[in-house]
Write a protein that binds this DNA or RNA. Structure first.
Lengths: 237, 237
DNA sequence: ACCCAGAATGAATGAATATTCATTCTTTCG
DNA sequence: CGAAAGAATGAATATTCATTCATTCTGGGT
């Protein structure tokens, strides 16, 4: 980076000001740098799309030099793979924690918490969603991605089925089947995420929640309360 | 395809046999070539993933020379855009045709036909799904894609809502709201497609259908029949 | 038969990009 | 303090790929 060679006499701006004067090379442990790069990758994918992401883009987003991604991840492919793994584990881990949640004894409330987690959050959540679906798009062609996703997915699905089964037993519901419902609910949530991502104009987060809640209410009327979104309305017109 | 080129005579493979001996340059109208290239693009995306698709790949899949894609589509970006438009219009067009379907007077049967269209078909369907989601993955970063999808999407959503409203009226269902249900159903189908694409081991097409039917049955019990995996359902007398 | 508009080709070009690695810098530990 | 370990840098390299365009070929019109 040019280092100390002070800018030539001309007071005009030259092409590459060395990014602030205080910028010093920092040495940090491997794990930290890896996370930093993964975070940068997530932002890049969300902003530019998976197919447009370059190493330059990622490393400069992370505020580091080009070579560093290969230093810590060997290759771009591997960086992308690890990024997917991170997002997948974070999302599914969060769900599982809630579903196991001995801290929320009431099953109905636990459902609510799950829904909040799945459809809540702000910008960050939107970034994660982008990443999520970017990989889905490639998954048909890349078994590695399928494997990563389906591994964590299977566990979450199992937990959800168990939760539903408990609710069914507790409520004495008939004519519902835990496994089928769990598949349906998961698919519904995925589909709503898609809608939020692609047609944010048509589908607000608020409405997405209402729709998901509706699904649950129809299956478990005794556990899932009424409209609950404030005093929402009969103002459907 | 491949035209008549019979399998080679020479047992040895040389590097670049000019693609069969009988291959003659063929001149075809613009529209036909465009479709041929779009079809090839779909296959390439399904097989290699959107981010790995190259012009070489597409044109050779179509059995044509490299330059031709730029001749008919100006640029790779545009080819991809037109491919998305084609898939989107085909999918949504098919749905709309069924939903308007004056050829199926019974509303319950019309629902069945819709479900068949959405979750039926074979390999082709899987290819289309790949394309579909590949673009969804980029949509967060590319307004053009959002626009294409949401344009056709909005129309289909409206038709679905209308159909649901008719069914609600006919069945005298209370406690269901057409708009909300339509959003939910669309999301559910999208989510099931995702599942079929990414975790085909866990979710078979058969089960996906059952889950979707379950959703409809819970909303419209008089119109959607029991487990019957075949489509013929008698409902509402 | 012969012309020629325009369809098709594919070698060549240049831009973009992943990866390497010699060098520079920071920190730690004796 | 001095030196070793290894983290970080970024110029250089090799590759891949979209796009161009001079040239070749086809088929319908006359």
């Amino acid at each position: 980076m040019k280092s100390e060679g002070m800018s030539d006499a001309s007071g005009v701006m030259t092409e590459e000001v060395p990014q602030a004067i205080g910028k010093r090379r920092q040495i940090r442990p491997r794990a930290e740098r890896r996370q930093q790069l993964i975070d940068a990758t997530i932002r890049c994918i969300a902003q530019h799309g998976l197919s447009k992401v370059t190493m330059q883009m990622v490393t400069s987003e992370a505020g580091l030099s080009v070579g560093i991604a290969n230093l810590h991840f060997q290759s771009k492919d591997n960086l992308l793979k690890e990024t997917l793994r991170f997002v997948a584990e974070e999302y599914h881990g969060g769900q599982i924690e809630i579903m196991e949640g001995s801290d929320i004894p009431d099953l109905g409330e636990r459902l609510d918490a799950l829904l909040d987690f799945q459809l809540g959050r702000g910008v960050t959540q939107r970034q994660k969603m982008s990443v999520w679906f970017a990989y889905y798009g490639e998954a048909g062609a890349r078994p590695v991605y399928q494997k990563i996703v389906s591994t964590v997915d299977r566990l979450a699905a199992q937990k959800l089925e168990t939760l539903f089964a408990e609710i069914i037993q507790q409520g004495g519901y008939t004519d519902v089947e835990a496994r089928e419902l769990a598949t349906g609910y998961s698919a519904l949530i995925d589909g709503l995420h898609l809608g939020l991502l692609v047609t944010p104009r048509e589908l607000t987060k608020r409405r997405a929640r209402a729709v998901a809640r509706d699904f649950l209410r129809r299956a478990f009327p005794k556990h899932v309360g009424g409209v609950a979104l404030r005093s929402t309305v009969f103002s459907q017109r």
